[in-house]
């Protein structure tokens, strides 16, 4: 009886999930497939599912005069360094914010995350002026700082939440076991924070990796990132769909895989058994 009652909602759930899955996956699959099609097939009136895959778009991206390599390296370097700084500082600030007993702690935490809430468009002009005075335009440091301005508050906020979930008993037990505060952090807190650190790092990296607005405004010939390279394919004479889709695939795939990895790192699984 129970199963017949639940039968309908269950089917409905599956249908809804299927629909969502198609909605999410079809554009990505279409993009990935098309990046292996010749330009004729891509722009043909009837989309084709069966075709002979070619690597031409990818090879031309990396071999032609305007190779994608510098863009890719810029993206990796800028996103990587800004993520590293955000995670290290975010971890320390989050730990402090979670453990310290001060008045108005929630207000401080909210103020920090509120700086993340400003739309990019609102900060882009002031930042541009600041960067011009500081000679940070068209530098890697400039973009790293720009991404940090958004990623750091986010990292602090996220890490605070992860630290809040970790019972302080564990550090206290370590300290009674003879550890200094730093040793307790190093041997007990940090290993248990891996899920939090990985999650924060991936989310910060995605933000920097995907950004177009900051890169478009602050970068110059030396510091352009992949999204800029993609935009450059939209020219007045036409759009090179094949290359554009290939770049799209290169941008999306690592992030999609990273996103799947985050799922594995749930804090619950690791701290289970620590207390109670």
């Amino acid at each position: 009886m129970n199963t017949s009652k639940r039968w309908l909602p269950h089917t409905f759930k599956i249908a809804l999930l299927t629909l969502l899955l198609l909605w999410t996956l079809i554009p990505i699959i279409w993009m990935v497939l098309s990046s292996f099609k010749s330009n004729d097939i891509i722009t043909a009136g009837t989309p084709r599912v069966f075709f002979t895959p070619i690597l031409e778009h990818y090879t031309s991206l990396f071999s032609s005069g305007n190779s994608l390599w510098p863009y890719l390296l810029n993206s990796l370097f800028i996103a990587g360094v800004s993520t590293l700084i955000a995670v290290v500082l975010g971890c320390m600030a989050g730990f402090g914010l979670s453990r310290i007993r001060i008045k108005g702690k929630q207000h401080l935490a909210f103020w920090i995350i509120s700086t993340r809430m400003a739309p990019i468009a609102a900060v882009i002009v002031p930042l541009y002026l600041l960067f011009r005075y500081l000679y940070l335009l068209d530098t890697h440091a400039g973009l790293i700082v720009a991404y940090l301005s958004f990623n750091l508050p986010f990292a602090i906020w996220l890490m605070t939440a992860f630290f809040d979930d970790l019972p302080p008993d564990l550090e206290e037990a370590a300290m009674i076991d003879g550890a200094t505060k730093l040793q307790a952090f190093r041997y007990v807190v940090l290993p248990l924070m891996t899920p939090g650190l990985v999650t924060t790092a991936i989310l910060c990296f995605i933000f920097a990796w995907n950004d177009y607005a900051f890169a478009q405004t602050f970068s110059g010939p030396n510091t352009q990132t992949i999204p800029i390279a993609a935009a450059q394919l939209l020219t007045q004479t036409g759009i090179d769909w094949g290359k554009l889709l290939a770049i799209g695939t290169i941008v999306v795939c690592p992030m999609a895989i990273a996103g799947l990895l985050v799922k594995r790192w749930l804090v619950k699984g690791l701290t289970l058994g620590a207390v109670k």
Partner: peptide, 20 residues
Amino acid sequence: VGPADRGLAMVFQSYALYPH
């Protein structure tokens, strides 16, 4: 004197075992 140097041992209500 810090907790590390008092030479005491404590058993917590939550046990506080290091889960890793």
